[in-house]
Write a protein that binds this DNA or RNA. Structure first.
Lengths: 208, 208
DNA sequence: AGTACCGGAATAACACTGTTATGCAATAAT
DNA sequence: ATTATTGCATAACAGTGTTATTCCGGTACT
């Protein structure tokens, strides 16, 4: 009934391409169709394999989701790393916040799973996952350290201030993803900008 | 041939107790065992009925979840309404924020469904649901109006400031529910209090 | 070479899920 | 009293995650 097996299976040891294809399909389905599209059978179809591959390669759907989330964290870290350090530390911080928000709005489903606590088929963040996620936090703290070092904002515990900025950004972005705030209503200028500006006691513009 | 089942009670003013029992079981299961425990069959068992009741009474699982969420919004509104107006408008605002956070932490699963955008079996917030949810927002704005009227904080657009407070509160609470911030680590005093204090340019203490 | 092996994938089955179709009992309407 | 309708139970359908079994193909011996 089925087509003949793939004529060229270059095994080549290290990373099974079945694993790669499953992860790729999972990331794409989550991004394009949302969490409900993430099913073992659907993944198997998309990756041209059987559901068993999910179990031999990952051990189950929750473990697969965990890897997708880990990749999401990695992509976020890389994205934040693209923000270069210029001589204007405050501008760098703003760019960091922009990159964070852009990444979240470009992959909203993934973002809510990463930070929103969306239970995806019984999967919840483990402490290890959260530790990975919190180096977002350290990126913010480092940027704040430089801003404080330049005397551009009040000097204090950068980790605490980073926690405040993260809370504010995260909260605004989650409400934005939920559809309560919409950039076309001007909420970016009316809510987000004043929020961060007041928090750091310095004018900030997140819009383009 | 036959139209969609009308979700409203059919004849007498009496609300079917099957409907009440289903909603009660749904709220309890969501609160105690999380979103994955919300299944039609499980609900039918808990309410001593059959899965069909879910469809005759509500029209399906998404509609039932919608009602649970609506009840959550109603409970939040009542909770916020218990905060009395004293002659200290700023203290009232703080109590409002405390009530908001306490309600969220007491029903974290419900809260993430209400505001976090957790897709629960394909259910997502409709615009009507969001409008109901945003009278939380107006409660905040009203409290801010009184604080501004008393000259305790800078006078400006209270709706915009309310949006900023809501973003900050929501973000902190979501990270708290996700397990990233833990009150036993002192994050309430180190992150949340300074966050709101700076936002309003007045000292605020959310802890007990 | 031949052969035993063994790991990963395919097939199928189990216990679930939401949903729909059917049937039935009781009530409302005529 | 007879008909129509309403509301739930039963059962079935298609889907889910997961597990057991089978089976095939490359690896590693002999």
């Amino acid at each position: 009934m089925n087509a003949l097996p793939d004529p060229s299976p270059p095994v080549s040891g290290l990373v099974p391409e079945v694993r790669r294809k499953l992860l790729e399909a999972a990331a794409r389905l989550l991004s394009e169709e949302g969490p409900s599209a993430l099913s073992a059978r659907r993944l198997a179809r998309e990756a041209s394999t059987s559901t068993m591959a999910v179990y031999t390669q990952f051990g189950g759907m929750p473990a697969l989701v965990r890897e997708v989330v880990a990749e999401g964290f990695a992509r976020l870290r890389e994205r934040l790393a693209t923000v270069e350090h210029t001589d204007d530390a405050l501008a760098d911080l703003v760019q960091l916040c922009r990159a964070y928000r852009e990444n979240a709005l470009e992959h909203p489903n993934l973002y809510t799973v990463m930070f929103g606590g969306t239970s995806l088929g019984g999967y919840r963040l483990s402490r290890a996952d959260m530790d990975v996620g919190t180096d977002t936090f350290t990126a913010l703290a480092d940027a704040l350290d430089r801003v404080m070092g330049a005397g551009l904002i009040r000097r204090e515990n950068s980790r605490h201030v980073a926690g405040q900025c993260w809370s504010a950004l995260h909260g605004y972005i989650m409400l934005e993803i939920a559809g309560i705030y919409r950039a076309e209503d001007g909420t970016t200028e009316l809510v987000l900008d004043p929020l961060l500006s007041r928090l750091l006691a310095v004018p900030i513009t997140m819009g383009p």
